[in-house]
Design a protein around this nucleic acid. Structure first.
Lengths: 343, 343
DNA sequence: ATGAAAGCGCTAACAG
DNA sequence: CTGTTAGCGCTTTCAT
């Protein structure tokens, strides 16, 4: 690997000391016109670029925001990071996305540590509440904001969704359509979001005077495969649900697949509602009724907060929850007379 | 920000010199049992983590692969990076994803440079052929592999798709269904992929003895919005096409939308075929006929190549193109008698 | 207007 | 077995 040119080389060619060259290149302090000219000339000739690694080691800014994610691959995550990326760049920051299942594994500790040194601020997207790294960060004082997190309280600003309330709204929509036997498909409980959504589901049922039926709560992961499996399980019940509330859109897709492959129709036989409203939900068949999250506002807030922190400002370590909006498309419909009567 | 503990502190507590502490912690060289115990004890107590930045500045490995992308946001890109990420982690590397429109902007140069110093190897996914950074990399000697690139030749290994051939196959499928008036929706020409696909489209038409009609080549970006706009444009033609070949799946989704919103049906009125076969293409309506890329193999090869390079091995600077496979679903069908007769 | 010294945190090479 | 010296590339004092 060809060595990249360094400041001392530039300085030598220009016939000055490294520090003078440094000043000229950064444009600070006094440098005579002639010296400056020679230095710039030499730098151009050598194609010199300052070594940010070295600068950073001395504590300078990097203009980089680190985005830490786990389970890279989910579509919501993709949408969230995309929004964050757009927002960050609009503010003059670049994004460094780091993917790790957990951040507290000893093998990863060094990397994580280095990245947090490298970046001016950190955004943890959908972090695992059980991850010990959260505690490290909490004490560390590093500018850091949690995004899409709804688990145990940490002393860090959190930008999240009104998961519980949004879920209640979703189920109320189903209730309003006459459904009484409503299933919930849960994701993982890593971030706490699924748990909150489940609470909202139960809130709505309780308010409607419907007793919870444990066999109607299924699932286990936020992806299509899990949604598919969970739906199959529901369909095999002696009394299957007439409607399914999936903890996210991707699970809903999987559920719809399972229903179709049983020869049943959505929403004629079973209604399905998702959560997140990722862009593709209006393209699947049938177009998915779901709860929309205000992605842009959320990203703007998250990035705004880290940037404030990174620039020495203060942000209270509290959770800001954004409201969800019901988007009615075609995967939900009134409960059929025959099924409704069955109850 | 609380300073993180450093080696010298550990050493002081353990009553040894920094270098001895270093040896004990890395497990190299001779350290007496008693000293080692005291050092580990102190390190644990201080929660010491080595500063990889400092290590890296001395030229050590980081076990990180940098993935540089532009236009972060596209779903194909997401799938590709996801596959790369999985593959890299399976080999013990972590991924650092860096998003920038271009890598040669002066403002970004420092960051780009730093990242390439930081990472053991680089993967440029869908790079812009016009980006001057490619030339820098070419000379630089940094372990680096291009992924999904089909533009001007550079002296770097490239892992790509059989774009031209795959496109030909796609159009031949349409031809076999009786279509004669076939449109092509192009993406951007940044990576050269769209251009190659267009060549394949023309190859197939020519082989079938159909004269190219410039009004049937539309588009301009690899996303839904562009696909939508392009399809509207096609539908307004005096003689609209009976089939559309979109340069990627996302454009195809947009096209299908446009067709539906005109009150037409896919494939009854117009057939649509995509390119890439991202997972969602089997869930949209109608399920999309498309060309599948061997994602896992591709990622395995790309990661395998950088890792080889990073470990001092050699990889020839040539392009490896992976074949595409036709996946027939329900968005393509035989041309209708009335339309076919029209010609 | 310019430079020398010192240090960021770590470790290879070379003494003890 | 352990410590000293030196240096990665840069920049902030503090001179001159």
């Amino acid at each position: 690997m060809r060595k990249t040119s360094k400041l001392s080389e530039v300085a030598k060619i220009a016939g000055v000391s490294p520090i003078t060259a440094s000043r000229a290149i950064r444009g600070v302090g006094y440098v005579s016109e002639s010296a400056r000219a020679r230095i710039m000339e030499a730098a151009a000739q050598l194609n010199y670029t300052p070594d940010m690694l070295a600068r950073r080691m001395r504590g300078d800014k990097s203009n980089l925001i680190g985005v830490f994610v786990n389970n890279y691959g989910s579509l919501v995550l993709h949408e969230v990071t995309r929004a964050i990326s757009a927002e960050a760049r609009a503010r003059g920051y670049d994004i460094l996305l780091f993917n790790a299942e957990r951040f507290d594994s000893p093998a990863r500790a060094g990397t994580v540590d280095m990245l947090s040194k490298l970046c001016d601020g950190l955004l943890l997207v959908m972090p695992n509440g059980a991850d010990g790294y959260l505690d490290v960060l909490e004490q560390h004082g590093m500018p850091c904001v949690l995004v899409h997190y709804d688990a145990r309280t940490v002393q860090l600003p959190v930008v999240a969704l009104e998961n519980r309330n949004g879920a209640r709204l979703a189920v109320e929509h189903l209730l309003a359509l006459g459904h009484r036997r409503i299933a919930f498909m849960a994701g993982t409980s890593h971030t706490g979001q699924s748990d909150e959504r489940e609470k909202g589901y139960k809130d709505a049922l309780r308010a409607a005077g419907i007793r919870a039926d444990a066999s109607l709560v299924v699932g286990g992961a936020f992806n299509q495969a899990a949604g598919n499996a969970a739906a199959r399980q529901l369909l095999e019940l002696r009394r299957p649900p007439t409607a399914i509330f999936a903890a996210n859109d991707e699970m809903a897709y999987g559920a719809i697949d399972a229903i179709h492959s049983r020869g049943l129709k959505v929403p004629a036989d079973i209604s399905v509602i998702g959560f997140d409203d990722i862009p593709l939900s209006s393209h699947v068949f049938p177009p998915l009724t779901t709860m929309r999250q205000p992605l842009a506002e959320l990203a703007a807030r998250a990035v705004g907060d880290v940037v404030t922190l990174a620039q020495g400002g203060t942000v209270a370590p509290v959770k800001t929850a954004f409201p969800m909006e019901l988007v009615i498309r075609q995967s939900t419909g009134p409960v059929l007379a025959r099924t409704a009567g069955e109850k």
